[in-house]
Design a protein around this nucleic acid. Structure first.
Length: 346
DNA sequence: AATACGGGGAC
DNA sequence: GTCCCAGTATT
């Protein structure tokens, strides 16, 4: 693949001199990779130096106290990395005689080592053609191939990993992996990359389509939206009520609920009464309304908080769609409704 | 499939 | 403020 060669060539001419690039010792590579997870080189570099000074080998690290490791990690964040680092060092010393696993598959078993880190160590130290996919690789590939699959979706992770794996130079996986990452960090950077000096400018899809700034696509974590649900618990003198089936998409499809009035904001009894008098089910009907729950029930779904009020509405009669309250348990209902039914003394 | 997990750098 | 950074573990 010509792209792979171009990247490796660019790397040989442009790579920064970094201490972990002077060695293939798995301990050093492992340490550097853990430190650099979600961490910029500038921030991680001093920690790499101090860790190697304090713990020159995996045996030194394994013999330390966890608090000593955490102290040295102080300020770097994501402290589970430090705890896993220490635990893994002990594991390697005590169970593996101080010898690092040498394949992607085995490395993946280590605490704190995921797909990325296992690939990095396997390729750099053991020449295994396991493609790394980090934030840089997502950016380079999405732009070069013009792929807009969200990089934080399951689909995207699969797709980009496969693409990187197809692209990797099996003759030189170590340099290819580091090349594409370094290229992403230095040349194909997030903001305002200088594409006029890019060695891939002639074949970059995003550049042709002027979509460099649109890629990669990352779906925003949906903010939790707040909704106000008002359920109308209608009760007739002959002990009937009304349940409605939820149609269409969205939550609770095909489940049953009391007639619902969704409002933009929380409503008062006075406020809801006004709406009720014109409601389809209550037109020209005498009714008496009261609020069941004084405290708003906040039902939490993944991306919605449902601020819920149950309004008890007594009427003389209900039409033919009403069901006997005694049958209410035969209908599938959301937990929110089910909890109310169980708690309410019909 | 979401979410928690840190802190700093770049704009 | 917003986005991003050589991601992983847990729910």
């Amino acid at each position: 693949m010509i792209v792979s060669k171009t990247l490796i060539n660019w790397y040989s001419n442009n790579k920064r001199e970094l201490p972990w690039r002077q060695t293939k010792d798995p301990y050093c590579i492992w340490l550097s990779e853990i430190i650099l997870q979600q961490t910029q080189i500038k921030q991680g570099l001093p920690y790499y130096e101090s860790f190697l000074r304090e713990f020159p080998t995996v045996f030194h690290l394994a013999n330390a106290d966890e608090s000593q490791v955490l102290k040295l990690w102080q300020g770097l964040g994501y402290y589970s990395r430090a705890r896993n680092l220490h635990a893994t060092a002990k594991y390697i010393v005590e169970k593996l005689n101080g010898e690092f696993p040498s394949s992607y598959k085995e490395l993946l078993q280590l605490k704190g080592v995921g797909d990325y880190t296992a690939s990095a160590i396997a390729s750099i130290c053991f020449n295994e053609p396991a493609a790394v996919v980090d934030g840089n690789v997502y950016r380079v590939l999405s732009r070069y191939f013009g792929i807009d699959t969200p990089i934080n979706s399951t689909q995207g992770k699969k797709e980009f990993k496969l693409l990187a794996q197809q692209l990797i130079d099996i003759e030189n996986p170590a340099d290819f992996n580091q090349a594409i990452m370094e290229f992403g960090a230095v040349q194909c950077k997030p903001q305002n990359p200088n594409c006029s000096i890019c060695p891939l400018q002639d074949s970059c899809v995003a550049l042709q389509k002027s979509s460099i700034n649109q890629l990669p696509v990352k779906t925003k974590p949906n903010k939790v939206s707040k909704k106000h649900f008002n359920f109308l618990v209608l009760i007739s003198k002959d002990n009937k009520t009304i349940l409605e089936k939820r149609e269409g998409k969205g939550i609770w499809q095909n489940l049953y609920q009391f007639p619902l009035i969704e409002t933009k904001t929380a409503v008062t009894e006075k406020n809801i009464s006004k709406q009720l008098s014109t409601h389809e089910l209550l037109k020209e009907v005498d009714f008496e309304v009261s609020l069941y729950n004084d405290n708003t029930i906040i039902h939490k779904l993944s991306h919605q908080h449902l601020h819920t009020k149950f309004w008890i509405i007594h009427v003389d009669n209900l039409n033919g769609d009403a069901i006997p309250i005694d049958n209410i348990h035969s209908y599938p209902v959301p937990i929110l409704i089910g909890n109310f039914i169980d708690a309410f003394n019909f």
